[in-house]
Amino acid sequence: MNGLINRVFFCVFLWFFYGCNNSSQENIVDFERTISEQDNVFTIPKEIKNAILRQFPSVEIIKKEEYSKLFWDFYDSSIIPNECFTDVNNDQLLDYAILVREGNKLKLVIILSDNKDYSYWISPFSIEKITAEGVNFCVSIKPAGRTDVVKKVPESLVIKKNGFLVRNLEQDHFVFYEENGKIKNFKML
């Protein structure tokens, strides 16, 4: 009986020692290798894209193939240039931005989520006149913070929430952001 207790004691001791050794050891990881574990690509859900077309019947969603050759000289072909998503109205839900064409006018649609429904906003002005060469503008996220620009006079924008950044190739062009329930824009050029 005593022998059995001794053996159990010894096993528990070894188990504890191994666990302890493991928890205090230096973290040695081939970090870059661990990236390959990520293979998910999240895009704006199809039902939301369909709802955009119902809300704004005169628009078409910009496709990746519509981008100019020049654009792909700047960006890797794996990126999704025409849409992105983050929380822009501070409700911890994803909001979406997507570039659309209305005739030859490039416009931005922003979709704000709330718990039950979505609200849709379209830029009242054209971001770019789309030519035969293709689209040169992309949309990404502008994190909360300060932006300073120098036009004729210096101007600053401080956004407390995330916004959407529209770029002409690699040049920042507009920030679209939410304030008091309304979408506003800040022109950077």
């Binding site: 207790i5 001794n6 004691f9 010894f10 528990v12 001791f13 504890f16 020692f17 666990g19 302890c20 928890s23 205090s24």
Partner: peptide, 18 residues
């Protein structure tokens, strides 16, 4: 037995701190 118990407690205590 007492030595094993002592070692066990030492390891357990140092593990918590690590």
């Amino acid at each position: 037995n007492y030595t094993a118990l002592f070692l066990f407690l030492c390891v357990a205590f140092s593990c918590k701190n690590a």
